[in-house]
């Protein structure tokens, strides 16, 4: 069901600009990988590679030992920071869409019993994310947090093998964000999915993941800013981080000195 991901010496460059440099990475099935890094250091490119939206310039990405498909597909679900849901469909319609695409190749719509079945499945999924009260609303009527819940339900109803989250809670208020953390951890524990989550919030990265990746450019050539790409500079199993490492990362990715953050022990224990 859930998949392992292997990056084998992956490079990504656009023309002469190297974005990612020799990424080597083994992710086991069921890991919750959080990705942090300064802006413009290849986090989003990393996610686009995983989506299949971009192809590596060199190297290979393997999913369960097989090459990753070269375009986005239902085996990898995604939630973006914004625009993840369809504004012209109701909440229920948004979640049913994924089921309908698979079952009705030509019309993209289901009728009769098949439709009722899909509706029930979508409704169950929406209950799991706490949207049972908003089934017939349009996304524009939902708050930011509810829209993200919908986007998560929409992705999970397809039972993907990997879930990709691109700063999914970046635009939410701190209180709402906390609820969303609880939700995503709960869903992750229940489904056992492999999750990649990009975040610019270091604390969130430490709190949610079982493993933290830090992307950073180590080498700079001031005369050719595009000559070197970012690499994975830290790859830490979480739950056993000491304060010094945390502070090092914080300075490396340029998170401002705010209130003293202590790396929280993730609320889950590794199997």
């Amino acid at each position: 069901m859930t998949a392992a991901i292997h990056f084998d010496k992956v490079w990504k460059s656009y023309g002469h600009d190297v974005v990612l440099e020799r990424i080597d990475l083994q992710v086991k099935a069921g890991e919750f990988v959080t990705v942090v890094g300064a802006s413009g250091c290849g986090k989003t490119t990393f996610l686009r590679l995983l989506l299949g939206e971009e192809a590596p310039s060199r190297g290979h990405i393997l999913m369960d030992g097989r090459p990753l498909p070269a375009e986005p597909g239902p085996d990898r679900g995604v939630v973006f920071q914004r625009y993840s849901v369809f504004p012209h469909m109701t909440v229920l319609g948004n979640v049913m869409a994924g089921l309908e695409f698979a079952a009705a190749p030509f019309t993209g719509r289901l009728l009769g019993r098949a439709r009722r079945h899909a509706r029930d499945e979508a409704r169950d999924m929406l209950c799991a994310v706490g949207l049972e009260g908003a089934l017939d609303k349009y996304p524009a009527e939902l708050s930011g947090g509810m829209q993200q819940r919908l986007a998560i339900a929409q992705a999970l109803v397809k039972r993907p093998r990997v879930l990709l989250l691109d700063e999914p809670f970046g635009a939410l208020d701190p209180g709402i964000r906390k609820d969303m953390h609880a939700l995503i951890l709960d869903l992750w524990r229940r489904t056992g999915l492999t999750v990649f989550m990009i975040t610019h919030d270091l604390k969130e990265g430490f709190y949610l993941g079982t493993r933290l990746l830090v992307f950073d450019k180590l080498r700079h050539d001031p005369h050719a800013p595009g000559a070197y790409g970012a690499r994975i500079t830290y790859d830490i199993p979480l739950g056993q981080t000491d304060r010094q490492v945390y502070e090092d990362i914080r300075t490396a990715i340029g998170v401002p000195e705010s209130a003293p953050l202590s790396p929280q022990t993730p609320p889950h224990t590794e199997a």
Binding site: R76, G77, F80, R82, V85, F101, Q154, K158
Partner: peptide, 11 residues
């Protein structure tokens, strides 16, 4: 994002 999302839903 919408077009990518649709593809990840199998469209």
């Amino acid at each position: 994002e919408q077009l990518i999302k649709a593809q990840t839903l199998g469209a």
